Computed example of a mutant assay.
Amino acid sequence: MITIPERISLANLPTKIEKLDRLSAQLQGPSLYIKRDDQTGTEFAGNKIRKLEYCIREALDQGCDTLITCGGIQSNHCRATAAVAAKLGLKAIVVLRGEQPDTYEGNVLLDHLLGAEVRWISSEDYRDHRMNIMNDIASEVSAHGQQAYVIPEGASSGIGAFGYYTALQEIVQQEQELGISFDAIVVALGSGGTHAGLLLAQQLLETSHRIIGINVCDDEQYFQKAISTVIQESSHYIDQPVHIPLKAIEIIDGYVGKGYAQSQPQELKCIQDLASLEGVILDPVYTGKAFYGLLEEIRKGTFEDMQNILFIHTGGLYGLFPHASSFRF
């Protein structure tokens, strides 16, 4: 029996699983299902809250009163962290990549509404020094008599990964209730923590699911290393070594497109088509790219030996609105 760390309960769980009937019929391939982790809440909607439930429990256990994290200007994770901090009476400091805009919209608007302190750093500093910058802020907080807890980008850490360890337990229970089994679980890869948690659970619970990530930035090699690192960190919490060879970390590369948070017409059309066909709205940064990649791979025959595929909708609705001008109706 594996004992995992404790968490606080904040998300609306379990999230439901829906079959995409009309899309599945159009594709004439495996049946497609979607897990609605975009419905984990309102202010903290998306996959990040599952990970934050574990991170923030650890922060509270350590007596911390300030949460420090980082992300892009439309970071779902930063917005979720700000929301949880407000709910629990904590302070949030979010470090955002890029230049401060003249007007706020989407997630960055919500960061401010939720009372987070927002600090801006250059893209270069974010890429090369973000952890050092957050640790320096933590020292600054400590000098003022408070105690900070630093959460890495996307809450992709050893403790955060348990959010998707328990998500796979949830999926297994839902499979029993629905009377089906999923051959593969597909998820967008932005920082790697969600994939790491699913793969950790798949290994330790010995389920037969293939865990497949579709990266929306960087490349396959980068994420294989990042996921492996998170899993190694997680193993320290359960006092049990977990070794997963890099080649066993399945990633479908090739759908980054123009780059992180930059959309191509075919990706936007995929978002629009799914919305009008199934009433499900994806986001352009994560789920839109990954779902487009999944559909392309189904059309290529990559999944022809599978019957049921589950795609995890990791949220991101608020990040859709700043891209409104990119859509053509």
Rank of each mutant, 00 (worst) to 15 (best):
G71T: 04
A116T: 04
A261I: 00
E124C: 05
S325K: 12
I211A: 14
I180D: 05
V230A: 08
K19I: 04
K16E: 03
E124F: 09
G160L: 11
R328M: 10
T42I: 15
A143P: 09
G163D: 01
M134A: 05
Y260Q: 01
A226L: 01
D125C: 14
G154V: 05
G259F: 06
C70Q: 10
Y292V: 07
S234K: 01
I227R: 07
A188T: 04
D305T: 14
V280S: 04
A275Y: 04
M131C: 05
C217K: 05
F329H: 11
L277T: 12
Y164R: 04
E177W: 10
Y126T: 09
I214V: 11
F44C: 10
V186K: 08
L27V: 01
L282A: 03
T194H: 04
D111M: 13
N76F: 08
K258Q: 13
E233T: 00
R22N: 12
A82H: 03
G71A: 13
Y237C: 11
P241A: 12
C64R: 09
Q62M: 13
T15Y: 10
E6K: 13
G160H: 04
E58N: 14
K300E: 06
S75T: 11
M134P: 02
N12M: 12
F321Y: 11
S325C: 02
F329M: 06
I211G: 10
N47Y: 05
D219E: 09
L310V: 02
F311K: 02
L20V: 02
P5T: 05
S326P: 01
M1F: 07
D273M: 05
I159K: 02
I93Q: 11
Q262G: 02
D283E: 15
L113R: 07
L320N: 03
Q224V: 07
F321R: 01
L294T: 08
G98M: 07
V216T: 01
R127D: 13
L295R: 11
Y33N: 04
I73V: 14
E140M: 13
E140A: 12
Y104E: 04
L295Q: 03
R299L: 10
E296D: 10
T69R: 11
Q240F: 15
Q176M: 05
K269P: 00
T40V: 10
S156I: 13
V242H: 06
P245D: 11
L60M: 09
C55A: 05
D111S: 15
A201F: 09
E250N: 12
I151W: 01
V118F: 10
A92T: 06
Q221E: 09
L60Q: 10
C70I: 09
I185D: 01
R36V: 14
V118P: 14
L274Y: 02
H144F: 11
I309P: 01
A45N: 14
I151C: 11
D273V: 06
G197Q: 13
R299F: 08
A11M: 10
